[in-house]
Design a protein around this nucleic acid. Sequence first.
DNA 1: ATATAAAGTGCAGTGAAAAGCACTTTTTAA
DNA 2: TTAAAAAGTGCTTTTCACTGCACTTTATAT
Lengths: 72, 72
Amino acid sequence: MHSKEIFNIVKARRESLNVTQETLAQLSGVALRTLKQFESGKGNPTLQTLQKLGDALGLEVTVIIKNRGINA
Amino acid sequence: MHSKEIFNIVKARRESLNVTQETLAQLSGVALRTLKQFESGKGNPTLQTLQKLGDALGLEVTVIIKNRGINA
DNA sequence: ATATAAAGTGCAGTGAAAAGCACTTTTTAA
DNA sequence: TTAAAAAGTGCTTTTCACTGCACTTTATAT
């Protein structure tokens, strides 16, 4: 999952919940300026920032093993 | 998934592949000092750093929707 | 058409992530 | 037991994420 895909998921989720960037910024504790950056495809968020947004949106940041068929 | 869980997965994966921190640092392009921080439970990596480690270890950073039973 | 709300952008300051270096501690083999 | 390898830690510098502010552009009504 590339950065931009992740940004798109955050944006899509926010929109599907009918929440403005400003409201999400308040709910998540992430600055509006920062959120705008991500939704316009730029930036390199810290894990903490991603998790704040995730918490507010009902999303979870996970790390999974690729190639489940081949590896254990 | 909390930060420390993610760190633990990275560490466990590295160990299961029998790779040293030093080798992983070289393979991933993440500095040894930075990697050491994470594996000792500290720090707040950027998405890019997490993805570099993930790429080297066959792990993927994803964002998923919580409560799959309740939400669409 | 035109207010109003929402989203996008440039610039600058602050703090923290990333990294290098030197050193200590722990683990692993011989 | 004791070298050697691997992992952990303190200190420092450099880079950049995060943020605020001011402004522009684009949607969304009325």
